[in-house]
């Protein structure tokens, strides 16, 4: 039943682990994508697109906080989760951690599109979550996500003519396999528990199927090829992600691409340095 579970005390150990894994996936995706988006601040092609992507980053940071808040039910604190976890404890998809080549706006737009279609589907699958605090905040997030996909699609269409087309195709070739990891499980058993306990009401397989049947026809309509296009039949829904289509590092299981270590090092640096240099020590050196 929707929102029937009010507290983790009502859960057994496996269910608690599954809840934690689900929340980490949700929060970490949002947080890391926002970190990457902020790299476009003052570098986007126009002031308006700069503001738009900065706004998206702020939205995603807000949503990450909403999910980290729920993890506090399980005994964590926000600052521990963001600044004190080792890089291999993060559970985000590799799609969101990939670095941008300098000035590759098409990469930012393709990533934005592939991610936001997935996010829309996954939020629908959380609307009726059995865990009250998850179900409670989905509406707020959806109300702020509404224009993300539209923004991404507008830009995809704008870039799909002329030289932009080639840049989009390069980005699709590069990012599509990483986007498929959005639908990879932390591990099979945990994923099964997430659905059985009703934390999410749809399986990752079903979400992947819907996602592929949305993104591939859209990309096809813009003349963009995807590795999966031959297996998407526009009148059928069935689709299975093949192992050979996935990248070696999948994020969800804690394995990440090298770029993640650099990004993690960067955004935790100030926190670590502040821990090392207390104000009193600075005062002492003045003697």
């Amino acid at each position: 039943m929707v929102g029937e579970i009010e507290s983790p005390e009502e859960l057994d150990a496996d269910e608690r682990d599954a809840l934690e894994a689900l929340l980490q996936r949700l929060a970490d995706d949002e947080y890391v994508l926002a970190e990457r988006y902020t790299e476009w601040q003052v570098r986007a092609p126009t002031l308006e697109s700069d503001l738009a992507l900065s706004n998206n980053a702020q939205d995603e940071l807000g949503h990450a906080r909403l999910w980290y808040d729920v993890l506090e039910d399980l005994g964590y604190e926000e600052h521990e989760l963001v600044y004190e976890r080792d890089p291999d404890e993060w559970r985000h998809s590799t799609l969101v951690e990939r670095p941008f080549a300098e000035g590759d706006w098409a990469d930012a737009i393709v990533r934005h599109y592939l991610y936001d279609v997935a996010e829309e589907l996954r939020l629908e699958a959380l609307e009726e979550s059995s865990y009250a605090k998850i179900a409670d905040r989905v509406g707020k997030i959806q109300s702020e996500e509404g224009y993300h996909r539209e923004h991404a699609e507008n830009w995809m269409e704008r870039l799909a003519t002329g030289e932009g087309h080639e840049r989009l195709q390069d980005a699709v070739d590069r990012l599509f396999p990483h986007a498929l990891t959005l639908f990879e499980p932390v591990d099979e058993q945990t994923e099964e528990t997430i659905v059985d306990a009703g934390f999410r009401t749809e399986s990752l397989e079903d979400l992947a199927e819907e996602w592929v049947n949305t993104t591939v026809p859209f990309l096809d309509g813009l003349g963009l090829e995807t590795p999966a296009v031959e297996r998407v039949h526009f009148d059928e829904y069935e689709f299975e992600v093949l192992d050979e289509e996935l990248p070696d590092k999948r994020g969800r299981d804690g394995s990440h691409t090298d770029a993640w270590n650099d990004l993690h090092d960067e955004f935790t640096r100030t926190y670590r340095e502040l821990g090392r240099s207390e104000a009193t020590k600075i005062m002492e050196t003045a003697e």
């Binding site: 702020q58 939205d59 940071l61 807000g62 949503h63 906080r65 909403l66 905040r137 707020k140 997030i141 702020e144």
Partner: peptide, 8 residues
Amino acid sequence: TYSGCPAR
């Protein structure tokens, strides 16, 4: 009003 409120 906004989940990303910087004055939270």
